[in-house]
């Protein structure tokens, strides 16, 4: 055996277990998903080749007497939901950065705070979702109870005041009664609040902390001597120095965001009310495992693939220079 072949053999032997899994569970399935998207298959009857019909049904439109209609308006709505929920990403990143900056001072108990902030991330999952379902329960959840208690307290106070001043009558305030997860317009913001709560002290804060510690103090000292205020120092030193971190967090969150939302939709809202919290991944799940449309589900997945691909490409084009991967 030549050295060359030996080297190749050794290399591939090391690679083999992973490469095998990679081929079987990633590479081939991606190809299979593309192929499957050209079929109509309900798992019971043999799959039938339908060409691009699934994509036409998904992305296309048609005309009738009343004008032009989207072929699958639900898809666009759920895509919009997915994007809407992703607006939590910058909010959460901002909160993380702020927390990290505050934590990055010479403060006693830093480790304790960091641990506490990280708790929701560690515990994330179905358990936390059940907890939040209760927090959001409009009838007897934590939020509405607190709102009611505060309003009642206020009303009691004004009533007493009115009692002291004869001739003055005060109308008690009605407590606002947000419906949270049950309201069409409340549901998405509710999920976002949960997400920001769960994520702001988590991974991105840790990464920001690490990034902040990597900035040399001399930079700040020099800036201070030049008379830069705190905001200017933040704007011109901290932010630029953290760009790689920001970019990393952003790109991973965006990729995750496009495929996210399933767990919360399944556990907390069933995608409702009226589809307000259905995301693309939940839609795929419904088509594949509830409505018997494997091919159509695969077509949605393929479209999702291209969306993520395009977005990542754009991200790299505009931010990629800042991070060095290879």
């Amino acid at each position: 055996m030549t050295i060359h072949r030996r080297r190749n053999l050794t290399g591939f032997l090391f690679l083999a277990p992973n490469l095998f899994g990679f081929m079987v569970f990633t590479a081939v399935p991606v190809g299979a998903a593309f192929a499957l998207s050209l079929f109509q298959w309900d798992l019971f009857h043999p799959p039938r080749f339908v060409g691009l019909q699934n994509f036409v049904d998904l992305l296309g439109w048609f005309r009738d007497a009343e004008g032009r209609h989207l072929a699958d308006p639900r898809f666009w709505k759920y895509l919009w939901n997915t994007l809407f929920l992703m607006t939590a990403i910058p909010i959460q990143m901002g909160a993380s950065l702020f927390l990290a900056i505050v934590l990055n001072q010479k403060i006693r108990g830093r480790v304790l705070f960091r641990t506490v902030f990280y708790l929701p991330t560690v515990c994330a999952g179905v358990g936390i979702m059940l907890l939040w379902m209760w927090i959001y329960n409009p009838e007897f959840g934590l939020f509405n109870t607190v709102i009611k208690a505060v309003v009642d307290f206020f009303n009691a106070g004004t009533a007493r005041l009115a009692h002291l001043l004869p001739g003055v009558s005060v109308r008690p305030l009605a407590a606002p009664h947000p419906t949270w997860l049950k309201g069409y317009h409340w549901a998405k913001p509710s999920l976002m609040i949960m997400r920001v709560w769960g994520g702001m002290g988590g991974t991105s804060m840790i990464l920001y902390l690490a990034g902040l510690q990597g900035i040399s103090p001399e930079l700040y000292e020099a800036a201070e001597i030049d008379g830069a205020g705190p905001w200017q120092r933040f704007r011109h030193i901290t932010l630029p120095m953290l760009t790689p971190t920001t970019f990393f967090i952003f790109i991973t969150s965006v990729i995750g965001g496009f495929q996210g939302g399933f767990d919360a939709a399944y556990v907390m809202t069933r995608g409702g009310p009226d589809g307000a919290t259905t995301t693309i991944s939940y839609y795929i799940f419904n088509h594949a495992f509830r409505w018997f449309n494997m091919g159509y589900a695969a077509a949605i997945a393929v479209v999702l693939f291209f969306i993520v691909f395009a977005v990542t490409l754009v991200n790299w084009k505009y931010g990629g220079r800042k991070v060095n991967y290879l």
């Binding site: 990679f22 079987v24 569970f25 990633t26 590479a27 081939v28 399935p29 991606v30 299979a32 998903a33 499957l36 990729i255 496009f258 495929q259 693309i280 991944s281 795929i284 799940f285 594949a288 494997m294 589900a297 695969a298 949605i300 997945a301 393929v302 999702l304 693939f305 993520v308 691909f309 990542t312 991967y325 290879l326």
Partner: peptide, 19 residues
């Protein structure tokens, strides 16, 4: 390998399930 980092899990989910 790097290229597959951004493949959504939903894409491979159905074929792997079928497999």
């Amino acid at each position: 390998y790097l290229g597959t980092l951004m493949i959504p899990g939903a894409v491979t989910m159905i074929p792997v399930f079928l497999l």
